[in-house]
Amino acid sequence: MKAIIMNEYGDSNVLQYVDDFPDPILKDDDVLIEVKASAVNPIDWKLRQGYLKQMIDIPFPFILGLDVSGIVKEVGKEVTMFQPGDEVYARADTSRNGSYAEKVAVNQLFVSKKPSNLNFEEAASVPLAALTAYQALRDFAGLGEGERVFISAGSGGVGSFAIQIAKILGAYVVTTTGPKNIDYVKSLGADEVIDYTKNDSLDTEPVDVVFDLIGGKSQIESFSILKEGGRIGSIAGAPDPKLAKEKRANAKGLWVKSSGADLDELRNYIEAGKIKTEIAARFPLEKVKVAHELSETGHVRGKIVIEVAK
């Protein structure tokens, strides 16, 4: 099959396009998905660069890609939830070959039916980012009606879903973005928008929850607006324990889990028109290298999608 493989850690040049990679080996509880579209997430190039090799041991040659949408081609003998011909989307397994390929094997528990109102490219833009936001705000933060939440980088892949999910949960949303995306994040439901190019500090009333998507200086600054006893979760490095102790905060570094059940719930919101997705750019499979380079700029509104098959 056609695929993008890497044989070593490194820059985008380690990504190689091949047309003779072996098909995935199907386990008893796997579905084999004929990939229509994938997407690029920051974790992809962090894995490629070796930043996460202490956490995730990947075998070379390896195929990256965690977001997938496509059609079920085959099912393992213990699969009861899907059948060939089903249109699906999923967040694949980090430790197995991924979706930068014509086919990918995914455990049935990680898979959900594709939202009926999204095409394959739009569906591929959803799983990782939306699951990250959903699990952070619902499960870790327990975000509730009338609470205030600060979401950094609201126009990015995770941020754009987080704003919409926070509004579904009934929260008041404060976010940061650049001047070009102020209207965009407001259209997603942001109640208060801070232009990071004009403000050196966060000028807002204290918040119950901080969802940090940037880390570093931005994360440290967000403690200044967190209420005492509040919650701060980050996907960009564990929150500073000293600052967390000073605020008596529930603080945690967050890691998304693959979940078909959560994707089922997100599908319901998408089909109801409560969550929409934004595609920043589309690339064919053989141009994944360029897609990675764009993602690494850190200035992408929405998601970068890989068109694998028509």
Rank of each mutant, 00 (worst) to 15 (best):
K2H: 14
M6H: 09
Y9F: 15
Y9T: 09
Y17S: 06
F21C: 09
D23R: 15
I25P: 04
V31F: 05
I33Y: 07
V35W: 01
A37I: 00
A37D: 05
N41Q: 11
P42I: 02
P42K: 11
D44Q: 02
K46H: 02
K46N: 07
K53I: 13
P59M: 03
P59G: 02
F60P: 08
F62L: 14
I71D: 08
V72P: 15
K73M: 06
K77E: 10
T80R: 15
F82H: 05
F82A: 04
Q83P: 02
P84V: 10
E87G: 08
E87V: 02
E87Q: 12
V88T: 07
Y89D: 06
Y89F: 14
A92L: 01
D93I: 00
D93M: 00
S99E: 08
V106S: 10
S112L: 04
S116T: 11
L118E: 03
E121F: 00
E122H: 00
E122M: 00
P127D: 13
P127K: 03
A130Y: 04
L131G: 06
R138A: 10
R138F: 11
F140H: 12
F140N: 09
G142K: 12
L143F: 13
L143E: 02
E145M: 15
G146S: 12
I151M: 09
I151G: 06
S152T: 12
G156S: 10
V158I: 10
S160D: 08
F161A: 11
F161Q: 05
Q164F: 06
I165M: 09
G170D: 03
A171M: 08
T175S: 03
T176F: 08
P179K: 06
N181Q: 14
D183F: 00
V185G: 09
L188Q: 04
D191T: 07
E192P: 03
D195L: 10
K198T: 14
N199W: 00
N199I: 00
D203A: 13
T204A: 09
D208M: 03
I220H: 11
E221H: 02
F223D: 10
K227V: 02
S234G: 12
A236M: 10
A238V: 07
A244W: 15
K247H: 15
R248T: 04
A251I: 05
K252H: 15
V256S: 08
V256Y: 03
V256C: 05
A261R: 12
L263V: 04
R267Q: 03
N268C: 03
I275P: 07
K276M: 10
K276R: 13
I279Q: 03
A280P: 01
A281H: 14
F283C: 07
L285P: 07
L285V: 04
K287H: 05
V288I: 13
V290T: 13
A291F: 14
E293T: 09
E296N: 02
H299F: 14
E307G: 02
V308M: 00
K310N: 09
